[in-house]
């Protein structure tokens, strides 16, 4: 089997804020092309785990490997570059830079990832194709990001995550701002796009009903030990 897209081994992280808080993950692996739903209530350490995977925070012990590379061993700048190359990120909402056009937003990650830009080929064409594949009206590219509806904004965020085909997409409750019908439509589009490039997906949600559409559903409490000092 090829390298897994994501592999976490014996990870421990202690948040050194006012409230002592620690996360420990013994093993979490996502294979190429696999879609995984990570279920967890708010405050269950999901955001911290995602930050660890994206490399914006570093584990105290253990390793996080993306596409076979241990990102914990990298320097800060290289890690940021690596994230841009390898991971597409979709937030809950307010994904877009409000002052930029749709095109600006979609092309933004390519600005920090030269290899990914190369993979995307003609970036403007790729962005336009993604937009139409995601059902965004023609001419959206030049629109201001804030001129779109919330559902459309989330689709732009998907296009931005997918452009240049990064091997892993991280989505943090991307459907929580959408109604049930839009949620289904959103996931249809997301899965259709990912299937064509064998992209892996790690999606975080608190909604177990979404589970049936994923290859695998895992619960936060099963993969991670969270400890909270009651101060």
């Amino acid at each position: 089997m090829a390298d897994p897209v994501l592999q976490i081994c014996d990870l421990a992280y202690q948040w050194s804020g006012r409230s002592a808080f620690s996360v420990a993950v013994a093993d979490l692996t996502i294979a190429k092309g696999e879609s995984v739903l990570l279920l967890g209530e708010s405050g269950s350490g999901k955001s911290t785990l995602l930050s660890l995977i994206c490399g914006t925070i570093l584990p105290d012990t253990g390793t996080v490997s993306i596409a076979g590379t241990n990102i914990s061993a990298m320097g800060g700048g290289a890690r940021d570059r690596f994230r841009a190359e390898q991971i597409g990120v979709i937030f809950q909402q307010f994904n877009l830079l409000p002052f930029g056009s749709v095109a600006d937003n979609i092309l933004l990650p390519l600005r920090f990832a030269p290899k990914r830009r190369k993979r995307a080929g003609d970036a403007a064409d790729a962005a336009t194709n993604l937009c139409s594949a995601l059902g965004l009206p023609a001419g959206t590219m030049d629109a201001k990001a804030t001129a779109l509806s919330v559902g459309q904004q989330q689709r732009v965020a998907v296009a931005r995550a997918l452009i240049g085909h990064p091997p892993l997409i991280i989505a943090d409750e991307p459907t929580s701002a959408l109604d049930a019908d839009s949620q289904a439509a959103f996931l249809d589009l997301l899965f259709a796009q990912m299937a064509s490039h064998d992209t892996s997906l790690l999606m975080v949600s608190h909604d177990p009903r979404l589970g049936e559409r994923f290859d695998r559903v895992i619960r936060m409490e099963d993969v991670a030990q969270i400890e909270r000092a009651t101060a």
Binding site: D80, R81, A84, P98, L108
Partner: peptide, 16 residues
Amino acid sequence: RREMAIFRAMGARPLT
């Protein structure tokens, strides 16, 4: 802050 978080998620370094 949100704007900066988006930049960071897209791979911008804090230096950027």
